[in-house]
Simulated scan of single mutants.
Amino acid sequence: MSIALNKQSQKLFSNAVTSIKKYIQEGKLRVEDKDDKVITKTVKLKRKRPERGVVYLGHIPHGFYEDEMKSFFNQFGTVTKARVFRSEKTGRSKGYGFVQFRHPDVAKIVAETMNNYLMCNRLLKAEYIPPERQHYRMFSGLDFSEKCYPKLFRKIKTFKQKNKNRTDEKHAAFCRKQVKKIEKLKQILLQNLEIK
């Protein structure tokens, strides 16, 4: 048991000692003794990511998105991730994406089977991507909510604003404002007709 010189700092001290012991056991901290000097070095443990199989898909038909991909490709093996690349403005599909499988052998089979597969009057292109060509950010940014796409977000916001329930007073004010706009446009059109 470790004892601190001050009673108040005993709890803090004991927590520090237990965390250091834990780091030494996990191999994150290495203690070296050189010439009666204790040197501590933190060692980064490289965690090896499990090797996954990734398939590139091109010429993806409209409506064949992440959920549909996962359910369709589950017939071959376990699908861990799926991503369709989309336009930043509208949120529409760009027509290509990636599917990640738990086992690389399954991905190779899928790439061979699904290449030039006719789906919704389109020839689907599939290619296996080996682990050395896989980018670590291939599946990052998987938030597909409408807030990610400004044009889509503004459109939905406008729909909600126009369709919200109004009180009678607000509705009357809205109608008066619309009538004023129409009157202004009417005057501009009449002026343009008189000039010609």
Rank of each mutant, 00 (worst) to 15 (best):
E32N: 13
K34I: 13
D36M: 01
K37V: 06
V38Y: 01
K41W: 01
K41M: 12
K41T: 14
V43N: 05
L45Q: 06
L45N: 01
K46I: 08
R47P: 00
K48W: 06
R49H: 13
P50I: 14
E51F: 00
E51M: 11
E51L: 10
G53T: 03
V54T: 12
Y56D: 04
H59N: 15
I60D: 01
F64L: 13
E68W: 06
M69Y: 07
S71Y: 02
F72N: 03
F72G: 00
N74H: 09
N74L: 12
N74M: 11
Q75Y: 06
Q75C: 07
Q75N: 08
Q75S: 08
G77L: 03
G77T: 04
T78F: 10
A82D: 02
V84I: 15
F85I: 12
F85P: 06
F85D: 13
R86N: 15
R86P: 06
S87D: 15
K89V: 09
K89G: 08
G91D: 07
S93P: 02
G97M: 03
G97L: 00
G97C: 04
G97Q: 01
G97K: 00
Q100S: 09
Q100F: 00
F101W: 02
D105L: 08
K108A: 06
I109Q: 11
T113P: 01
N115I: 02
N116W: 07
C120V: 11
N121A: 14
R122C: 05
R122M: 09
L123W: 14
L124S: 06
E127I: 04
Y128I: 02
E132W: 11
H135V: 10
R137T: 12
M138K: 03
M138I: 08
S140D: 15
L142E: 12
D143L: 01
S145M: 03
E146R: 05
K147D: 13
K147M: 11
P150M: 08
F153A: 12
R154L: 15
R154Q: 14
I156W: 02
K160S: 09
Q161I: 05
K162R: 14
N163Y: 06
K164D: 05
N165Q: 14
R166S: 07
T167F: 03
T167D: 15
D168I: 10
D168E: 15
D168V: 13
E169S: 13
K170Q: 15
H171E: 15
